[in-house]
């Protein structure tokens, strides 16, 4: 197992290099001059502009810029964004907020998705099952920004049950509504996946054998149906953590959450290469690590899967 984990960590190196190079290249190829844009409506002061270009290495060819950026990473100095703040500090500010949001969304979709899916599966074809299936289709069908605005308006503004926007501190309480919106689509998928999986396992021979052993219904469901049904669900949830982190742009926009999505959006607009690349690289790493975590969880849940035998 240790060799397997080490191997997976070594695989992160080419992923890291490839992702940074690709993203850096994309930002470099963006049309427009980011320095000129900084001056806004004022005329461009060539001397200042030249100084700024030198400061951000924008006067160098692409590959030199990229290598200088790599060097800055390995010296733990990511440089500054256009407003002069250290990029490391920016990352330290936005990532905890989005991580909190994503984890809350994940908990929401896991707890409710699995619970609803289990009950729907056990009562296949009954009223609850039908209602939940149709509702989940509706949730999957409606775009997230529509759902976001609807919930923000009714729950946040009309009913006043939750704050419609998020404060600068982005506390857990502030993030409840955004987390529900962010997790809603995945909640529907988790529900359907759990339901299908439960129905499949309910008819498995070993479940019948477990019943024949004299186990209570509760134990049959918990020990023999649920655990086996969770194997595909856990895979989905793990992969979803990465998606939630990066995919929070729309939700963060609606609720004005000071997180990764918001900052990344601004950085792309203003062509701040190092900031964009730094954020995206961290996202890529999170995605890779959450996938590794899924694979390890998978082996833990299903003993038939072993990575180094």
């Amino acid at each position: 197992m240790a060799t397997y984990i080490l191997k997976r960590f070594l695989q992160l190196i080419p992923v890291f290099l490839g992702a940074t190079l690709l993203v850096y290249f994309l930002v470099f190829s963006l049309p427009g001059d980011p320095i000129a844009a900084l001056f806004g409506d004022k005329p461009v002061n060539e001397a200042v502009a030249a100084k700024l270009r030198a400061q951000y290495n924008l006067d160098q060819p692409f590959i030199v810029q990229y290598l200088l950026y790599l060097k800055s990473i390995f010296t733990f100095d990511l440089g500054q964004d256009f407003s002069g703040r250290p990029i490391a500090a920016v990352l330290g500010e936005v990532f905890p907020v989005t991580a909190r949001l994503a984890v809350m969304a994940l908990i929401f979709e896991a707890v409710f998705g699995i619970a609803f899916g289990l009950v729907a599966g056990l009562r296949k074809g009954k009223l609850f099952d039908g209602t939940v299936l149709i509702a989940s289709l509706i949730v999957i069908g409606i775009p997230i920004f529509v759902l976001g605005f609807i919930l923000q308006f009714f729950i946040g503004v009309q009913l006043g049950w939750a704050k419609p926007t998020v404060s600068a501190a982005a506390t857990v309480q502030d993030l409840i509504l955004p987390a529900i919106v962010l997790g809603l689509a995945s909640f529907a998928y988790v529900l359907r996946l759990t339901r299908t999986s439960v129905i499949e396992n309910m008819n498995a021979d070993y479940v019948r054998t477990a019943t024949a052993k004299g186990l209570s219904r509760f134990r049959v469901i918990n020990v023999h149906i649920l655990r086996n049904s969770l194997i595909p669900v856990v895979t989905f949830l793990g992969a979803d953590l990465g998606t939630l982190m990066g995919g929070a742009i729309v939700t963060e926009g609606i609720f004005n959450v000071p997180g990764v999505g918001n900052r990344l959006y601004r950085a792309v607009l203003s062509g701040e290469g190092p900031t964009v690349v730094s954020i995206v690289t961290v996202l890529v790493l999170i995605y890779c690590l959450s996938n590794l975590l899924v694979d390890l969880l998978y082996a833990w849940l299903d003993p038939r899967i072993r990575y180094d035998s």
Binding site: A204, D205, T209, A210, H224, R227, N228, D302, P303, R304
Partner: peptide, 8 residues
């Protein structure tokens, strides 16, 4: 198929 594959 009659033993649960995930339990000892």
């Amino acid at each position: 198929s009659n033993l649960n594959p995930v339990w000892k």
